[in-house]
Computed example of a mutant assay.
Amino acid sequence: MHRRQYLVTTGIGTVSALAGCTATDADDAGSDADDGDDTEDHADESADEQPPAELDQETLELGEAVLFYTEDGSQELAFRPIDPAVRPLLVTDRPEQGLLATETPSEDADYVTVALEAENVGDSAVDVPSTIELHAGGSSHSHVRTALTDEYEPFRELEPGESTVQYAVFEVPTADTDAEVRLTAEWGAREPVAAEWAVDLAEARRLEFDLEELPMGEVVTIGTDEVRFAVEVQSVREEDDGDETSVFVAFRAENVGSTTVLDPTIRGVTLVAAGQTFDPETDGGDDAYDADELEPGDSERGEFHFRVPASADPETFRLALTPELDASWTLR
């Protein structure tokens, strides 16, 4: 016989149980872990005293945890959304190629991400909520598939005691990213029930990628856990060559990720002088930058050589991190 699913509000105090703490985490937490256990006991007592409330009865606060479970108690899933963020783009990767990548939303839209914590607190395998939606400006936005690390997987099955933190991704009109919106999560196969949370995007983190006109010496660190670079322009020098000036830009890159990567200059570097764009010369030299693969922890340093008209003052060095994202350093 089909058993209806119900929701019990477990309260913000049970956060530690939903964060996927291991035995080691609990030992390190000391008294905080004990406080979390006490809170869980009180939540269970409250559930015994009151009948479980069916979903759709109230809008919860962001971070408030719920317990999805079947009527016979055979499946129990603790669940809560946290940490909303507004992003103009997503930084992803292609680890098999050793490349950084980015994804951009539609015109006049931004990405909104929300971390979703789920833990199987029952005695049998259970699926995570099948449908996650963000309701903003009179429209409903479904979770979109991207290459973001730890992206939410609907219908993922968790074994007893297993927990996960994954990110739901929504494409939301920019005009709605300063408003209060609602997040809903549906759980259950045949007669799903939905919990609802209020999300104030005006208070959400803003992840900006302001990498333009950086001062020389400023290090840019960008990427994912696997494909991640630290890059910087260290210095610039000029040599008079008659009608032209040779400009040498000292550049350094380090692989601070966990996998072998192609050199971050693989997509190209350019120099802007007097409003014109110049590509580097192909002639080598003892100090020339050598673009090659970088193992984790390896770094490369060298000079890029540009030739510009003698009357053109070097202004900017530009690095193409991805087809959609550049970093630039001011040379003056």
Score class of each variant (00 low, 15 high):
E119F: 03
A17F: 12
T104I: 14
E232A: 15
G138N: 06
T149D: 12
F306M: 05
R307Q: 13
E96I: 09
T282C: 01
G137L: 10
A78S: 07
G268L: 07
T14C: 14
D93L: 01
N255T: 06
E58H: 12
R237L: 08
E232F: 00
T330E: 11
A118K: 04
P52Y: 11
V144G: 06
F278M: 07
G161L: 10
E213H: 14
T39M: 09
A136Y: 05
D28K: 14
P323W: 04
E171G: 06
V181Q: 02
G122K: 01
D200L: 10
E254R: 11
V114I: 15
T164R: 02
T22M: 04
T270C: 06
L77M: 05
E171R: 13
V126W: 00
D110K: 14
A29D: 00
V233L: 07
D38T: 09
A23D: 11
S106T: 12
P95Q: 10
D127M: 07
L211Q: 01
Y6C: 10
P81R: 06
T164V: 14
A147E: 14
R205L: 13
T104S: 15
L100I: 03
L183D: 01
A320Q: 09
Y111S: 03
L62R: 00
A17E: 08
E58C: 08
D83T: 13
Q234S: 10
E171D: 09
E196A: 11
S299F: 08
L321G: 00
A273M: 09
V249C: 04
D290S: 10
H135V: 15
P88K: 02
T259E: 15
V233Q: 02
T131V: 15
S311L: 14
L116M: 04
D38S: 12
P323T: 02
T10N: 01
G30S: 12
A125Y: 05
V126Y: 05
Q234V: 11
E153A: 13
T14V: 15
A65V: 07
D41Y: 10
L201F: 11
T260D: 15
E61T: 14
D83G: 09
E151N: 08
A85W: 09
G257T: 00
T260G: 06
T104Q: 09
F251N: 03
F251P: 00
E226S: 06
L116F: 07
V91M: 02
E162S: 14
A230W: 01
R205I: 11
D110A: 12
A168F: 06
T177W: 02
L7D: 04
I132F: 12
L158H: 06
G275P: 05
H2A: 09
A26E: 12
L319P: 01
L214F: 02
V112I: 07
A65F: 05
T10C: 08
F155L: 15
E61G: 15
P173W: 05
